[in-house]
């Protein structure tokens, strides 16, 4: 595992596109220490690796959707929550490739 440092946490947060102040990173660092202790207990469970990772609560299934054109939103509905709109499109500062 990556060692958890204040720098790493800041980098993690920035990767998620937000920032926190120094004090908050400190709290987070402590939170990680607690979590690691708790996760250590899990690591010690004897048959932890005898099972596969479980995503779905019980054996369940999804179904395929028929390929039929459904309803669309009106332009007004699509764009009414966006803050900057031009020519029926959402406007952003120029995205540099």
């Amino acid at each position: 595992m990556k060692e958890v440092t204040l720098e790493l946490l800041k980098q993690c947060a920035n990767n998620l596109l937000f920032d926190m102040d120094q004090e908050q990173y400190q709290t987070l660092l402590e939170e990680f220490a607690t979590l690691f202790k708790q996760m250590e207990l899990i690591g010690k469970i004897e048959d932890i690796d005898s099972v596969t990772p479980l995503t779905f609560p019980y054996p369940c299934q999804s179904y395929l959707r028929e390929d039929i054109e459904g309803e669309t939103l009106t332009l007004e509905e699509t764009l009414k929550n966006a803050k900057e709109v031009e020519d029926n499109q959402i406007k952003l500062p120029k995205v540099v490739l």
Binding site: G70, E71, T78
Partner: peptide, 27 residues
């Protein structure tokens, strides 16, 4: 070139005017 999108049922074709082939999932 399916009739609808991969994970939503909004129409899937090329050349429509902007933001007219949109369902809540696509947004």
């Amino acid at each position: 070139k399916t009739k609808s999108k991969m994970f939503s049922s909004s129409p899937n074709y090329f050349g429509a005017s902007p933001n007219t082939l949109v369902s809540p999932l696509d947004m």
